[in-house]
Simulated assay, not measured.
Amino acid sequence: MRVEIWTDINCPFCYLGKARFEQALDAFPHKDEVEVVHRSFELDPTVPKGDTGLVVPHIAQKYGISEAQAAANEQGLGEQAAGLGLPYLTAGRDYGNSFDLHRLLHLARAKGVQDAVIDALYRGNFAEEDSVFADEEHVVRLAVAAGLDEAEVRAVLADPAAYADEVRADEREAAELGASGVPFFVLDRKYGVSGAQPAEVFTQALTQAWQSRSPLTLVDSAGGDACGPDGCAVPQA
């Protein structure tokens, strides 16, 4: 069974949602038969590359609330993160264009270390003071520590076209599936879960998706010649 998760590194609920989903997955009896794929979704693709700012005033302006309210929201997110055992900076965090980070995540998927790299980027954004949006060297260090080759990381970051089509394809798929926000979880392309739901919701979704997997129905399976591990059927004269 495949679970696809559309996320953005800017998104605190993606950070929390991944942890809650993993709580459910760790307890799922068929965990070893579940493939998890992380897909790209930019919360704000209009932010110019390298143009960053502090999260609290940005959130206050975006939602028409006071900076005190925005700061209180960050404190609340920090408390939720702590409840999941996740580190979280409640002040001084920034936001920015995430397109290059998504491109790196596609490189990471190709190299089989996507989950480790997304965890590293989340940690870099939500728990470390150096910016993942304005400090490329910080991103390189995180990606290499998570298992990527430094030369390949630098090559992707230096080439704006590298994995760009894959990121855009993910974003088109998200729109086609009706995702208007993240995190957005899709199980076997049959069931969707939107938002950082409690682990119990993910448990229910995993169970339902697993139970609905239909065995292949064979039509006229008895009469045709075929090849198998022991060879091919020998035509009878």
Rank of each mutant, 00 (worst) to 15 (best):
L77E: 00
V47P: 01
P235Q: 14
A222S: 15
E136L: 11
T207P: 00
A81Y: 01
I59K: 04
R93L: 09
A196M: 07
E22N: 12
D94G: 05
A164R: 05
S180Q: 13
P215M: 12
K62C: 10
K62E: 12
P229L: 09
Q80I: 09
G76A: 15
E74I: 09
P87S: 15
F202Q: 03
I65L: 08
H102C: 04
V153G: 01
E173C: 15
P12Q: 03
A158H: 07
G92W: 11
T46I: 14
K62W: 11
R2E: 12
G112K: 11
G50E: 00
D149W: 03
V3I: 07
A164V: 08
G64H: 06
F13L: 10
E173K: 14
P229F: 05
P198Q: 12
I5Y: 02
G231E: 09
Q208V: 15
I5W: 01
R168V: 14
T90M: 12
T7D: 09
K49M: 12
V3E: 03
D230W: 14
D26Q: 13
D230C: 10
L177T: 10
A91H: 14
S214D: 13
L177E: 05
E166I: 14
G231L: 11
V201M: 11
P87G: 14
A145Y: 06
G181Q: 06
L77P: 00
A143W: 01
C14Y: 01
G83Q: 08
A233P: 13
G53C: 07
A110T: 10
Y122K: 01
F133G: 00
V167S: 00
L54H: 05
R123N: 10
G195T: 03
A164H: 04
A158W: 07
R123S: 10
S221R: 14
D130P: 06
D170H: 05
L16A: 02
R103P: 00
A205M: 08
S212N: 14
A164Q: 06
H38Q: 12
A72G: 09
A120G: 04
E22H: 11
Q208R: 15
L121R: 00
E176Q: 13
H102A: 04
S180E: 12
E22D: 13
E200I: 04
C11L: 07
V55H: 01
Q75E: 12
A174Y: 00
V156W: 00
P229Y: 06
Y15R: 01
H106S: 05
